[in-house]
Design a protein around this nucleic acid. Structure first.
Length: 611
RNA sequence: GGCUCCAUAGCUCAGCUGGAUAGAGCAACUGCCUUCUAAGCAGUAGGUCUCAGGUUCGAAUCCUGAUGGAGUCACCA
């Protein structure tokens, strides 16, 4: 790792050995950035060694500091309480700015392969805000892992079968009048989603009517719980009605059975409608700037787990119940008994996941696997991972569940029934429109062509939206305020893009960019802070990769942009006081821009040249 | 009810391997565009880090308990 902090630690350990003849663990050494109110840039904490050496922390600090002074990179030191503050030499900063801190030396065993699953939508509805968080996290984590030296395979499992899509299909058959996305000029996924909603509405209507029948009356009177109102009762009864009484319900279920038995007309209807949905999804993905290496479809994998279950039965991982259902007992691992095969021999959700995991291993031989799935499925993945472990899968110790928190609106949880779901396409359109309005008002782009303008406005709008979502720690449930997501000031994507744009604007005005003639330049404090930030990149990246947490990169980018904006305001760059100052500052600006661009790229956010 | 996760400024969030006086942004208020793009900068104000114990040189951070909130506990996915 080309990380200077690591070098500081090892030097500290050597010094300790030399002057005290004591071995300490370099991983326990604490290096911080010196607080601005003290002199110096790096701080080592001495308290932990006080007891071991029976010396006051201040004394240790002074002794270690004196030893450090022989290093060329140290200029001076001071000790406050138990904190040893190191002031780096000017040459150190001059040297560091020449280094490329964006190159990550891979310390992992050479090129481990990791598969990342994200997005994974159902094909009966368009994508919404929740998918956007999922997709941004999955994409970003993929980029981060790749940068950290992994070979990454981006994948998803598309839930293209089941009762839900059959509802859309049936509604289209009954009420669609042969319309298509192109005949109505509606995006394919929305088109199919509209029929899903239509089905629900028609079903509700049918259900309401039925509730007035004598059959319904007597059922209510016979099987209501005491004091239960008719409304409550029928709310509870909805599923049973769908399965046992509903006309529409039985037609939809019949359609599912027909599909499973391979009925030609149903299958071709299914293919046509899913095709429409995929066209719509494709457009949304393209706009979001994401792509996948390999798609898996549930229609191909939903039968897969069965063979595994049979093998597992022989190996004693599973057991069979009297009724023929198959289970796994995970109680000794603190979990429950879980069913893996129904008594009728069909597989359940987790069985499919087991089968899919094995198929993926056959295809890619990955060492690790990341599932980007909301935290409501925490337990499911605990069970899945434990099961895969017991089945002795080679990647079983490399399984990760990136369990992000769900997205709430200021009004509470999104509910499709109440129509509060925020649609992904609408959201993108809105934020891009806002970016366009702001851009027009500023007038900076008035000389550019319409195409260039559109291009930039998209980058800004999507930058705002993506940053707003990705800056939040994935583990946390987040509250998404649409009004706030339109903001382009303060800690936002456009603020960071603006720092980059300002640098580009400066660089456009410079004729010769590669003059490295500034060895005599005395680096300013604010410039040291900026170089220090640039030097931090590998450290931040490593953390983000280990924790599967893009928000660390987001915070880092903001920090860098913030420092740059202050620098830009305080220090003349183009009109620097000397040639060496000019040369240094131009190179510094280039380095800052590169670091901003690289870290934002890891978040899936592009930089415009102007804005 | 069992298990899991969460609780930091009015709001949205940082603060993670325990370290110095807990930080940003938004909203509010005050300044700064003849000067490299004001999507910017500087400043004011805003805190019992939910509460109570414990661990130690030192706790927002680790442990225990309480309170409040969320999720989950299907032969659903």
């Amino acid at each position: 790792m080309g990380n200077f902090q690591t070098k500081l630690k090892t030097d500290f350990v050597l010094i300790f050995k030399e002057i005290y003849d004591v071995d300490i663990d370099d991983s326990a050494v604490i290096v911080n950035q010196t607080k601005p109110e003290f002199e110096g840039e790096y701080t080592l904490v001495m308290f932990p060694y006080s007891k071991q050496l029976s010396k006051a922390p201040q004394v240790i600090g002074n002794e270690v500091g004196s030893a450090f002074k022989s290093k060329a990179y140290i200029d001076d030191f001071n000790v406050v309480q138990g904190f040893l503050n190191l002031k780096m030499s000017n040459e150190f900063w001059i040297e560091q700015i020449h280094e490329n801190h964006l190159i990550i030396e891979n310390t992992n065993d050479s090129s481990r392969k990791i598969m990342v699953e994200f997005a994974s939508p159902n094909t009966n509805k368009p994508l919404h805000l929740g998918h956007i968080r999922n997709i941004l996290l999955g994409w970003s984590v993929s980029q981060i892992l790749e940068k950290a030296g992994y070979e990454v395979v981006k994948t998803q499992i598309i839930n293209d079968r089941g009762i839900a899509i059959c509802k859309s299909m049936l509604a289209w058959q009954l009420y669609g009048e042969g319309k298509t996305p192109s005949s109505t000029d509606i995006k394919g996924d929305h088109f199919v989603g509209d029929f899903y909603v239509l089905f629900e509405n028609k079903f509700q209507e049918e259900y309401k009517n039925w509730q007035n029948s004598s059959e319904a009356e007597s059922l209510y009177l016979d099987s209501k719980k005491n004091e239960e109102s008719q409304d409550d009762y029928f709310k509870r009864f909805k599923n049973d009605y769908f399965n046992q009484y509903s006309q529409l319900g039985s037609q939809a279920k019949q359609m599912l059975l027909d599909w499973e038995s391979g009925n030609e007309s149903v299958v071709s209807l299914w293919k046509m409608m899913n095709g429409w949905v995929y066209e719509g999804f494709e457009e949304t993905y393209r706009r979001l700037g994401v792509e996948f290496d390999k798609l898996y479809y549930e229609s191909d994998t939903y039968l897969l787990g069965k063979k595994v279950v049979n093998d597992g039965l022989e190996a004693g991982v599973f057991y069979k119940n009297e009724d023929g259902s198959v289970w796994i007992d995970l109680e000794d691992a603190g979990m429950d008994q879980k069913i893996v095969l129904r008594s009728d021999g069909t597989s359940v959700y987790i069985t499919q996941d087991i089968g899919t995991a094995m198929l993926r291993y056959q295809d890619y031989k990955m060492d690790e696997m990341v599932y980007v799935v909301a935290d409501e499925q925490d337990y499911h993945f605990q069970v899945l991972f434990e099961t895969l472990k017991r089945l002795n899968q080679p990647y079983a110790n490399g399984l990760h569940h990136l369990n992000y928190g769900m997205v709430d609106l200021p009004s509470g949880r999104m509910k499709s029934r109440e129509g509060t779901v925020v649609d992904a396409d609408d959201l993108m359109n809105e934020v891009i429109a806002e970016a366009k309005a702001n851009t027009d008002e500023r007038g900076e782009l008035s000389e550019l062509s319409a195409i260039e303008k559109t291009n930039i406005v998209e980058k800004i709008g999507l930058g705002a939206l993506k940053y707003h979502i990705i800056k939040v720690n994935p583990k946390k449930r987040m509250i998404f305020d649409p009004a706030e997501s339109l903001d382009m000031h303060g800690q936002t994507g456009p603020y960071i893009q603006n720092a980059f744009v300002r640098i580009q604007s400066i660089l456009r005005k410079v004729e010769v960019k590669n003059s490295n003639d500034f060895a005599d330049y005395l680096v300013l404090d604010i410039e040291k802070e900026l170089v220090q930030l640039i030097m931090d990149f590998p450290f931040v990246l490593q953390n983000a990769a280990e924790r599967l947490d893009p928000s660390e990169i987001a915070n880092y980018s903001f920090n860098l942009a913030k420092h740059f904006h202050r620098y830009y305001h305080e220090v003349r760059i183009l009109k620097a006081e000397s040639e060496s100052a000019f040369n240094f500052r131009i190179l510094l600006c280039q380095k800052i821009a590169e670091s901003i661009e690289e870290s934002m790229k890891l978040l899936g956010i592009e930089m415009p040249e102007r804005m």
